[in-house]
């Protein structure tokens, strides 16, 4: 068994109501300490109001080879973006 503390990925939600965002990683023996360490390491400049930690080995990630099938289909759906539509200035703000 490795003697090194497990690696945790840290996600922080900031002041402004945005979702939790990945900020980096750290080591900790367990999840309680991981949260405390995250507080001490990643919120020193009062960056956050909520912390998630997850052990790195539990993260499932998409593989780069799938990039094409996963993301390209949405490229062609340009109509999903508001800028696709020309609205005359006279209509006012929309």
């Amino acid at each position: 068994m490795s003697k090194e503390w497990p690696l945790w990925e840290v996600f922080i939600r900031g002041q402004h109501g945005l979702s939790h965002r990945h900020v980096g990683s750290l080591h900790a023996p367990d999840e309680e300490m991981a949260i405390k360490n995250a507080r001490d390491v990643y919120t020193r400049r009062n960056e956050g109001v909520s912390i998630w930690v997850v052990e790195a080995r539990h993260i499932a990630a998409s593989s780069p080879e799938e990039k094409g099938p996963l993301y390209e289909p949405s490229n062609s759906k340009v109509y999903r973006h508001p800028t696709f539509f020309d609205i005359p200035d006279d209509v006012g703000h929309m």
């Binding site: 080591h27 360490n37 001490d40 390491v41």
Partner: peptide
């Protein structure tokens, strides 16, 4: 003993 503790102690 470890970086995380170093940072926490400084706080």
């Amino acid at each position: 003993p470890v970086l995380e503790e170093d940072i926490a102690l400084a706080n």
